[in-house]
Design a binder for these strands. Structure first.
Lengths: 148, 148
DNA sequence: TATTGTTATACTCTATAACTATA
DNA sequence: TATAGTTATAGAGTATAACAATA
């Protein structure tokens, strides 16, 4: 006995995918003024959440290739958003640290995301909005994302 | 007076984006056995939901370029999942229709998504899962996605 | 010899622009 | 002349593989 599947467009998987792509596309537009892409924001948020870390560790956490981490760190370095220092104890490691300007950029990205949140959630009742926040927070935590 | 922004990783925008990308990546893996990509599933679902439509109309609904619709339709045509017929009333229009095999493929994709749903939502209480489903459904409807 | 970071290269996805057929 | 579809081309994003520096 197998339960009948719901139609694909009713699934959590499909809706998360479509709505996530929509959210990211709109976020990308708003980040343009800060010269950031969503992945840069993810990296800045990671640095803000935890201790300074080497590029390889950060790449693993974000699930991207080490070579992409180089590109992301290069760009953030040019913006003055992160500092890069060789670890004195192991000179192979490049340790990234958030600068004051990086914190300002991250705050700008948070404002942009926050504004977009209002637009996205405009159709939800306050109760549904709260329930959505809680459920997404649980999912994020279960997937190992840093939950502040 | 401006309210302080939450940290970016706490926003709906950021969480939807990251979790949506995660869901889509895992869905893509599972669809591999069916020789489909998520966009193919989106197109099949659209055809299943409504009347047969021309490629250009479908491209607009999905928010993709007409040239991409050609590629998607080509692939689904090769799989025997859709039929393509010139509209007799306007021979420029290619009208796509779902075949029986297309319906089977769509059912397979729905099963894959449904299985993934269980995996994704495993950490949620039943109440939170229901609340999440409702909130995402509301968002989907507000964004003009067909809500079955 | 193993590991970190970097560079070189290639692949996937998607859009824009040019073109064909039909209106 | 305008529109639907197609084909050709190009760009963004990202991964894999080769390489350099350090351990």
């Amino acid at each position: 006995m197998t339960a009948p599947s719901p139609s694909v467009s009713e699934t959590l998987t499909f809706r998360l995918g479509v709505l996530g792509a929509l959210a990211t596309a709109r976020f990308t537009e708003r980040l343009d003024a800060l010269a950031l892409k969503p992945k840069h924001v993810g990296l800045l948020a990671l640095l803000d959440a935890g201790a300074p870390a080497s590029q390889l560790e950060l790449a693993r956490t974000m699930g991207v290739a080490p070579s992409l981490m180089v590109t992301l760190a290069d760009h953030l370095g040019e913006l003055g958003a992160v500092g890069r220092e060789r670890d004195p104890a192991d000179r192979r490691r490049q340790v990234l640290t958030l600068t004051d300007h990086g914190r300002e950029l991250l705050a700008g990205a948070a404002r942009a995301a926050s504004e977009l949140d209002e637009e996205l959630a405009a159709s939800l009742t306050p109760a549904r909005r709260t329930a959505l926040d809680r459920a997404l927070r649980d999912l994020a935590e279960a997937e190992g994302m840093p939950v502040t």
